[in-house]
């Protein structure tokens, strides 16, 4: 059982968490946004090998946050509550 760091609760078992999305994939704003930009937002993912930042939710307390994770060895880095310099 791996422990993930919820910014509010602290270390909790991974089964209490749910993956949200890649961090920084912001929703386009405005009617002038082109089809390519929408397609990128909806379908294109960086899927990096190595360090990445992702949005997760701690389902028991409802906290949404950004978490650093390594996609190779699954090591977990910092977690930041959204609004604390986390996109």
């Amino acid at each position: 059982m791996q422990l993930f760091p919820c910014p509010f609760c602290g270390p909790r078992p991974e089964t209490e968490f749910h993956y949200g999305a890649e961090a920084g994939n912001l929703r386009p704003d405005g009617a002038e946004v082109g089809a390519d930009r929408w397609a990128g937002y909806l379908y294109m993912r960086a899927n990096p090998k190595g360090a990445t930042r992702e949005i997760w939710v701690h389902m028991t307390c409802g906290e949404f946050f950004a978490m650093e994770r390594d996609t190779i060895d699954h090591k977990i880095g910092r977690s930041l509550a959204l609004g604390e310099n986390a996109e």
Partner: peptide, 12 residues
């Protein structure tokens, strides 16, 4: 861990 403080009492 029941002996480590955790801010929320909600859990699985």
């Amino acid at each position: 861990d029941p002996y480590r403080a955790s801010a929320s009492a909600a859990m699985l």
